[in-house]
Nucleic acid binder design. Structure first.
Lengths: 175, 175
DNA sequence: TCAAGTTATATACCTTGTTATAAATATGAG
DNA sequence: CTCATATTTATAACAAGGTATATAACTTGA
């Protein structure tokens, strides 16, 4: 009864990926301890990471980088701004553009996230993706099963957290 | 600039899968000609397919089968009911339960979808998933690229549509 | 130079998922 | 039998994505 979607082949892959992504995000939120999260919505994390990596960016650049529609990015910026994690300054060359940058508070938060939630999420998700086999559809099915049977949080027990920058560096070498 | 998410490793996989799913669904909507769609929201398609395959079901059974929270299913049922595609009848054994079944109009609609949108979606999505390689993360990245470079619709040109039931039967054999 | 078009951001509204909870019904223990 | 608890569906409120469009600022061409 539970696996009805699997009988619908590739036609339902869109629905399945969407919900798989939502479940990953939900479980990712559970990974952070209270200290590292402090009420930050999950989708803000990639935005902060991009800002940290690529310095100040315009709303449009952020949207393109995140491959996301601009109004959603604007909304996240408002949220982050209300928490004093980012600040916007008008571009002197072109006053339509506002440059988004991390505040000092934002940088401090990013530092904490780099030591806790981000590597935890990376390592847990990598672990759940290990050894998938078969067609992409099969792999998605395996992921669905794994995610409901052993949540991300349980995959971190007894694992040492790497530091975020080291993780990414290492990954870029392997690739 | 465009591939910023790829530099974030597994940590951003949730966001990426969610948006990849959304884009697949959006492009799937473009596949149907006006006749086969008639204003049916994309997420209703799996629901109709399950109802067609497994006969009348309760709301709870549908939610479990679709691996989705119950209130979302209730909302879709209301929508489909307003279009006369499904009907609900109270279960004689347990009056809390209402059994959801396709109406004659619903069956006719399903018949049309089986001959057009569903196989089109299945074949197009299968084609875009062909020959992916590398880690799951790599495969997702390849899918993102392919989807933005050649949309699902363009993958159907000159391809004969199979019938839905034959497609699924064939797939279950291959597997 | 200024009118017309283009671009960047913000806003409004919609969609579709979620949780929490209420209301109706069923079940089971005493 | 009755009351406490379970279960089923519906409703309300929220989250985070989307499209369409308005507004302000820039650019270009006659």
């Amino acid at each position: 009864m539970e696996d009805g979607l699997k009988t619908l082949g590739y036609a339902a892959l869109g629905s399945r990926l969407k919900r798989l992504g939502e479940k990953l995000q939900a479980q990712t939120a559970d990974l952070g301890d209270a200290a590292s999260q402090e009420g930050l919505p999950v989708p803000c994390n990639p935005l902060l990471a991009i800002l940290d990596k690529r310095g100040p960016l315009s709303v449009g650049d952020l949207a393109r980088t995140l491959q996301q529609a601009q109004p959603g990015v604007t909304r996240m910026i408002h949220h982050l701004k209300s928490q004093n994690l980012v600040a916007t300054t008008p571009d002197p060359q072109d006053r339509r553009i506002s440059r988004i940058a991390l505040t000092d508070e934002g940088k401090a938060r990013v530092k904490r996230l780099k030591e806790s939630l981000w590597p935890a999420a990376d390592q847990a998700v990598q672990s759940i993706c290990e050894g998938l086999s078969g067609s992409f559809l099969d792999q998605v099915a395996q992921l669905e099963t794994r995610l409901s049977q052993s949540p991300l949080k349980s995959r971190l027990e007894g694992i040492a957290l790497a530091d975020w920058d080291q993780l990414l560096e290492q990954r870029s070498k392997t690739q």
